[in-house]
Amino acid sequence: MSGHPDGPGLPLVIDTDTAADDCFALLVGLLDPRADLRAITMVAGNVGFDQQVENAFLTLELAGRAGQVPVHRGARQPLVQPWISAEEVHGDGAGGLRRTGDDRPDAEPAQDALVRLAEQHAGELTVVAIGPLTNLALAVRRDPAFASRVRELVVMGGSLNGRGNVTPAAEYNIHVDPEAAQIVLDAGFPSIRFVTWDPLSLQHAVFDAGRIERIRRLGTPLGDFFVRANQASFDFDVAMGVGGSVHCDTLAVLLALDPALAEVERRYDVAVELAGTHTRGATVFDWHAPRGGNATAIERIDGERLFEYVLRLLSR
């Protein structure tokens, strides 16, 4: 890895609710030479919206990319229901670290930036959505042709087997705005690839205490940032019996750049439960896929390869 490419990389937008693993996912988009990160778009999710924006700018600074990638503010609330915080998981999402610069978000709203970039890079743009899908749904509403112009949408969200992490059935990113998720699934994106919470992330994207210690021993600024920003999530996940912190957002961005990382994937017809008393926000992956499937779920990746990649990224 030699840093941001001199030549063109994959035109990329990361739509994020920046906290902990989202920050590390941004580092992939900012530092991997295969990526040409055109924008960071912010959506209501993990922590307070203004804190998320601060965390995005902090990550830009730490990557040595301050002032080089625009940050666009998007939806501060889901389409229908009130915002649901995950601050009990992430704290402030940055381990108390603060940026030193004073860069400000771009005046263009996130949904407008998404529509514009999809038009400018028609058939080439990849969008990685690692938060709730509100901004994507608003872009679909803004321009019916938006979805068809995006080469690929990678979504971190949902669960293949009905196991949630907020409710018994619902994963956080989908649970926060299930209406938005269904709009995105119905929009006609040429390719949607899901990085699910369970089983994919829980089986292949967990960093246990031994892995965190290897990162700590790097002694680099990025390694120190990772350990500090990750601590709250690590403690929460371990207390929940996961065995370490889960790095599905980082995995999602890496899969956009390196599709071969996926060892097993399968087509599904995917829908979101919008009305269930106990299952609202659950993703239903129909393995029969009678219509040929509207999305692909990645079912297995090389978890050791993911960790070694992160280790190299943070050793810079």
Rank of each mutant, 00 (worst) to 15 (best):
A75T: 01
T277N: 01
T18Q: 11
L133F: 15
A139V: 11
N294W: 11
R116S: 04
D22K: 01
T100N: 09
E124S: 13
G157V: 10
R211Q: 15
G64A: 14
L314A: 08
V206K: 02
F307A: 00
G210H: 05
F225E: 00
Q68N: 08
S245Q: 05
W83V: 05
R163W: 04
E179M: 06
E213D: 13
V13D: 00
T277M: 04
V270I: 13
G96V: 11
G293S: 11
V270Q: 03
A239S: 14
F226P: 00
L97D: 14
T134S: 13
L261A: 10
G74I: 07
L60P: 00
G223Y: 10
E54R: 15
H121F: 12
T279D: 08
A44L: 04
L125P: 01
P105I: 14
D286V: 11
L261H: 11
L202N: 01
T59V: 06
P11V: 15
G157E: 05
D143W: 07
I14V: 13
G101P: 00
E88F: 10
Q182M: 02
S245P: 05
L313I: 04
P70L: 14
T41P: 01
R267I: 11
D143I: 12
G219Q: 14
V43C: 11
L125H: 07
